[in-house]
Amino acid sequence: MQDTFAEIFGRPEGVIFWQLIAATRFTIFLSLIAFSGGGLLAAFVCFARVSPSVVATKLAIGYIWLFQSIPLLMVLFLVGLGIPRFLGIDISPWSAATFSLIIFTSAYLAEVWRGAFEAIPTGQWEGGYALGLKFSKIFFTIICPQAYRLALGPTVGFLVQIIKGTSLAYIIGFQDLMLLGKRWANAPVLGSEPYLIFPIMALLYFCLCFPLSCLARHLERKQSDY
């Protein structure tokens, strides 16, 4: 593949272009891990947030508030530099980046999903209780299917934020599109000038994010038609 690109675009542009595309896969992997892991954690937090237990609700509010107020950059520094030096252990960039992004994702997704749950009319809950159903039964069989449709659009929209967020992970040495692009832009090679590399990188990120933005907008529009 690299040779094909080199033939089309010439050297070194083709090689750089291919390497950037190849590095994009780590951006995609990290986003997917962050999304699935963060989604799982967010599901727990969100469940606690809407549950009738006061303590669980307070804890969930605290969690969401805290991790929405802390910059992702600081989480990355704390997990990638702070904790390893404090405890004297080694944390690889992969695990540090994954962990930080999962926390970042979970706080925001929990908030998005909470909004979806609160948009469900309380009559649905009361109807369920009137039938003698338990909280968890109402939650999973009545509320969730309805909230799912409301939450789908914003969730896909947040995926764009995650992909953009992964670009920060290079700061702790995570090898992705950002790190490789920056390295090429700094390299004293003719044909890898910063004004060529950064637009190409922006274009690659755009190709990842724009279809998702369009999908999110489409889902939200479809939702409002009901």
Partner: peptide, 8 residues
């Protein structure tokens, strides 16, 4: 809106 701040 669809590219990271850091690339910009």
């Amino acid at each position: 809106r669809n590219t990271p701040l850091i690339v910009q």
